[in-house]
């Protein structure tokens, strides 16, 4: 609330002294230094307001990435176990092994996206906005925009892996399961 009030005061000061239609301009006074100070103070305020929110968002998304990493890793391990067990019983596991390789490739791409997101957002989680210049704010925005691209990519890849499991991997495991059922009967 205090920061918002300060930003409003700075904005009003800018319109009072900073624009070409302001009083200072009519009086012929050069206020460029003062204008820059107001702009820098505004940017610093925005940077400081955004920083804790970026940190919270980063911690949340990083936690989701770690959680999904564990789940996908478990799926890969179980696929290996099923393929090995089925192969030991004499079943043809070529399709299942091919499915696992495809799933692994998708997983690696997803993991890379999460890693890149981490590398771009993690430095911002401890960013201090000390310089308070427009360059700092632009820097933060640029990093966030890049990280957002990686997050969106990871989300798409995660959906893709989930549908691949449901539509392909489960079907191929059911084929082996039915084959075993027919042999038993």
């Amino acid at each position: 609330m205090k920061k918002t009030i300060v930003i409003i005061i700075l904005t009003l000061s800018f319109f009072a002294f900073g624009t070409e239609k302001s009083l200072a301009f009519d009086w012929g006074i050069d206020m460029s230094g003062f204008n820059q100070a107001i702009h820098d103070a505004q940017d610093k305020m925005v940077c400081q307001a955004a920083q804790p929110k970026v940190r919270t968002k980063f911690l949340k998304i990083n936690g989701v990435c770690r959680d999904q990493y564990d789940h996908f890793n478990n799926i890969l391990s179980r696929l290996s176990t099923i393929a090995a067990g089925a192969r030991a019983n004499g079943y043809d596991t070529d399709r299942l092994e091919s499915d696992r390789r495809i799933f692994l490739n998708k997983f690696n791409v997803w993991n890379s996206d999460c890693t890149m997101m981490h590398s771009f957002l993690n430095p911002l989680s401890t960013y201090s906005c000390n310089n308070g210049t427009a360059q700092d704010l632009a820097h933060m925005k640029s990093r966030i925009a890049t990280a957002k691209g990686y997050i969106d990519d990871a989300k798409d890849k995660s959906k893709e892996m989930k549908s691949f499991y449901r539509e392909v991997i489960r079907g191929d495991i059911n084929i082996l399961k039915n084959q075993q059922y027919q042999e038993e009967n």
Binding site: Q68, H71, I151, S158, K162
Partner: peptide, 22 residues
Amino acid sequence: DMEGVNPDKLDSGEISGANVGL
């Protein structure tokens, strides 16, 4: 395992008030 994966949780979303676009 797969039920535990919720892709929508990877939502970049918006940081309200900060206007920084994440």
